[in-house]
């Protein structure tokens, strides 16, 4: 994971993980993530974990930590390149947490629900869904 003392800005080529903790947020038919997983509301920010400097095991461990903390099941994660957000006019910002220095948020979402949905659809179309091990 990243050194908490030296957190770099998010590169557009970086991959970010969105943990899926609800079975209705992915399609079993073709193992893909639904746009619903990327709707930020009710909050202004969408929470993700950066892949940079993290091993695959560390990424899954972070997902499990979140699931345990929230008494939820970790179904999988959607990996998305940061530029899937930035090309929509959204900002990807490092937001290191004591328990996860790789934490980042995506902000500057439009308040208009249809516009949010369109962005979420386009982001989901560029995501790769991985089932939890």
């Amino acid at each position: 994971m990243l050194d908490p003392g030296a957190i770099p800005s998010v590169d557009p080529a970086e991959v970010l993980a969105r943990y899926v903790l609800f079975s209705g947020h992915f399609r079993t038919s073709d193992n893909s993530v639904k746009p619903n997983a990327f709707i930020p509301h009710p909050y202004a920010d969408l929470s993700l974990t950066r892949h940079v400097a993290a091993t695959d095991a560390e990424l899954w461990a972070e997902g499990q930590r979140i699931a345990v903390e929230r008494t939820a099941t970790l179904y999988g994660r959607a990996d998305v390149p940061a530029n899937a957000f930035t090309t929509q006019g959204l900002r990807t910002v490092p937001d290191p947490l004591p328990e996860n220095p790789n934490h980042a948020v995506v902000n500057e979402w439009p308040k208009d629900k249809p516009a949010q949905k369109l962005m979420a659809i386009q982001i989901a179309s560029k995501a790769t869904y991985l089932s939890a091990p």
């Binding site: 209705g24 619903n36 709707i39």
Partner: peptide
């Protein structure tokens, strides 16, 4: 295909491919 969104809205989704999809909340 039915689903829910974090803002408490329910969704109906029709999808024929990743680039042909309609989601209604």
């Amino acid at each position: 295909s039915l689903g829910a969104e974090p803002d408490g809205q329910l969704t109906l989704e029709w999808r024929t491919s990743p680039s042909r999809i309609l989601s209604v909340s």
